[in-house]
Write a protein that binds this DNA or RNA. Structure first.
Lengths: 129, 129
DNA sequence: TCCCAATAGTATCTTTGAGGTACTACCTTT
DNA sequence: AAAGGTAGTACCTCAAAGATACTATTGGGA
């Protein structure tokens, strides 16, 4: 996606930075991977096991795009069995602060949200009957 | 999704709060809608025009789920032509702070990310040839 | 009277991307 | 010779998102 050199702050234009970043971090796995890579490099299998429920195909493609965007580096040691380590770049590390803010909000507020959701589901149920 | 009453902080378990919230705000439109509803209630069409490129079907379903989760309220005035206003709940408003943090990061760092991405695309191109 | 504008959606079809399961290549160890 | 461990691929399915067109309602203008 092409971006203008200067930006005057219309956050709702399809080309705006916020949109680009939301497309980037707004998928199901990016944030989890970034949090996992926090302190030290991790191997493919380590990441996979740390995240429950990601398939290798999806992990591979997510990691590739993270590398392409310069958030993560990939280092392959020429060993057998293969060893590949992924770690955060400085850019990737700088993303951790806002991500952490979001996690904190999550930890404080999921309960209420789930509560609302369940209650709404009951209402929908009742209407269906 | 069912959530345990107490949580000990494994952010990578599929049932953890962070996962739930990421599934919630991690889609393409939620954050944009929350930012649009910031200051005042907005009508369906206003939201639609403010966000470039969302189809009415997707907007409808996103708004419904936001209402179900208690982040947004929907008020329908019995008028013709119809008038429906959406506004943030307190819970929805509380989500704005972390979302703003993410936007700030975006505004500071998209340029670099896009730059990396374009450079990688060139490399891929070269290898394809 | 008849038709149009305005609004909040629905309906239907196509496309995209994520998920599931199984498989490969490679060398080491037993 | 067989099994094990690792980083992925291949192929198929299915659900969600996107595109485009359509609906219901009624006050106002020709």
């Amino acid at each position: 996606m092409r971006i203008r050199d200067s930006w005057e702050g219309d956050a709702f234009d399809p080309e705006c930075p916020t949109r680009v970043i939301l497309d980037r971090v707004g998928d199901k796995w990016t944030v989890l991977i970034i949090e996992i890579l926090d302190d030290s490099p991790k191997r493919f299998g380590e990441i996979r096991r740390a995240i429950g429920g990601i398939t290798p195909k999806v992990l591979t493609s997510t990691l590739r795009s993270l590398v392409a965007d310069g958030l993560v580096t990939r280092q392959s040691f020429g060993e057998v069995p293969p060893r590949v380590e992924y770690s955060l770049t400085d850019l990737g590390r700088s993303l951790q602060a806002p991500v952490t803010a979001l996690r904190r909000w999550a930890e404080r507020n999921v309960a209420e949200l789930i509560d609302n959701r369940d209650r709404q589901a009951e209402i929908d149920d009742a209407q269906a009957r």
